[in-house]
């Protein structure tokens, strides 16, 4: 059981990394990765929202939508729930943790429409996790994977800042090229996890 959960977490984090392998959530990946500090903040916020979204959407899908044969409503219901949840979190943060709220700033509302979060909610269903804890483990792994990708790429970008690429590659082009190389590195994890825990 525990072993299964660990496999799920590591698979979601490394083999199926949402940013670098599945290419979901690219906008915050490119937008917020300029500084390590904000990259970590964004990564933690996304992890938190992913866990929260899974905790809300998985029961609703399993106990409500499936029961009434309304699986086709997944997307719209998930969007509704995630948006409301993020708003709720924002209100709570603003009241009780104003410092964190200020440092997260615009990121939190941006997460509302983040495809990585919706992707986790939908993948929990399509990958057929039968237990709630499995879905949560998957969400945690995805969040940590996002955090890992953000931190790694923030480091890469800090090196790019001081490098002098050819004029035509300056700015976004060189960033995209380095992102693709980092993504390539993550393909090396494919197949590793299964053998590691056998």
């Amino acid at each position: 059981m525990i072993r299964d959960l660990i496999v799920i977490i590591f698979t979601a984090m490394l083999v199926n990394n949402y940013v670098l392998v599945k290419f979901l959530g690219i906008c915050p990946f490119l937008g917020v990765s300029k500084k390590l500090h904000s990259a970590v903040g964004m990564g933690l916020a996304v992890t938190f929202v992913m866990l929260l979204a899974t905790a809300a959407t998985w029961p609703i899908h399993t106990y409500l939508l499936t029961k009434f044969h309304l699986e086709y409503l997944q997307t719209i219901v998930f969007i509704l729930i995630i948006a409301a949840l993020v708003q709720l979190v924002e209100i709570i943060l603003k009241r009780y943790l104003p410092a964190l709220h200020r440092s997260l700033g615009i990121y939190l509302p941006l997460i509302t429409t983040n495809c990585a979060v919706l992707g986790v909610a939908k993948n929990n269903i399509t990958e057929g996790y039968e237990l709630f804890i499995e879905a949560m483990a998957n969400a945690l792994g995805c969040g940590l994977g996002f955090l890992l990708a953000m931190v790694l790429f923030a480091g890469v970008r800090m090196r790019i800042e001081t490098a002098k690429p050819p004029k035509c590659f300056e700015g976004m082009p060189i960033t995209l090229i380095s992102a693709s190389i980092v993504a390539l590195a993550f393909y090396g994890f494919a197949g590793v996890i299964d053998n590691m825990f056998m």
């Binding site: 009434f68 409503l73 709570i92």
Partner: peptide, 27 residues
């Protein structure tokens, strides 16, 4: 009908929770 009721119900629930939260925890 069930589909409409389901989405409307969830939407209404979210709205109520948000309104209550905004009222209770306004800064």
């Amino acid at each position: 009908l069930p589909a409409v009721a389901c989405v409307a119900g969830i939407g209404l629930l979210c709205a109520v929770v948000l309104v209550v939260a905004a009222k209770l925890m306004s800064v």
